[in-house]
């Protein structure tokens, strides 16, 4: 079966587990994002039809919660923690350095789709602040030099 067909089957299974109930919308959006990587418009339409909910309701819920991505993220994802402890320890300067170095703003993906930079409110690594997440690796007590070097490694040595 095609990759898309497989994904659709997984999504159907998740919805069925919850009996297509309205109250499971968040759970189903979580599952869908896990399967597809992000919640595109067609996917949200599909979910709204399956659960028999107005598209505006599904879209409203998906946009309300910051955990859901409505656009396709880059191949590599850098997340700066903007929690209080990290802010106090100067994470803002590190995030600005990343923005300058890779020429993108927070919340954006580079034109070649290689790198996304997000900020989040606290990943809970406060005792190791400031913290930056590069793909799935948490860099604690981070400095801009270490983080930029690590991102360059992830991108394959070349500057994006």
């Amino acid at each position: 079966m095609s990759r898309d067909g497989n994904r659709r089957m997984l999504l159907e299974k998740a919805m069925k587990e919850h009996n297509y109930q309205e109250s499971a919308l968040l759970e189903i959006l979580h599952k869908a994002q896990g399967i597809y990587g992000y919640l595109g418009k067609d996917l949200l339409m599909d979910i709204s039809q399956s659960l028999n909910l107005p598209p505006s309701h599904v879209y409203g819920v998906a946009t309300f919660y910051s955990f859901f991505n409505l656009t396709k993220p880059g191949e590599h994802i850098v997340t700066g923690c903007l929690g209080t402890a990290c802010y106090v320890k100067g994470v803002e300067e590190i995030i600005q350095a990343i923005e300058r170095e890779f020429n993108l703003k927070r919340g954006e993906t580079t034109a070649d789709g290689k790198l996304s930079l997000f900020v989040t409110r606290c990943i809970g690594a406060c005792a190791m602040s400031p913290a930056i997440v590069v793909d799935d690796e948490v860099i604690g007590k981070a400095t801009k030099e270490v983080v930029i070097e690590r991102i360059k490694q992830a991108l394959g040595g070349a500057k994006a």
Binding site: L26, H30, Y65, F68, T120, R121
Partner: peptide, 8 residues
């Protein structure tokens, strides 16, 4: 369990 999705 019910998962939140990033809303303070």
């Amino acid at each position: 369990l019910r998962l939140g999705a990033g809303a303070f």
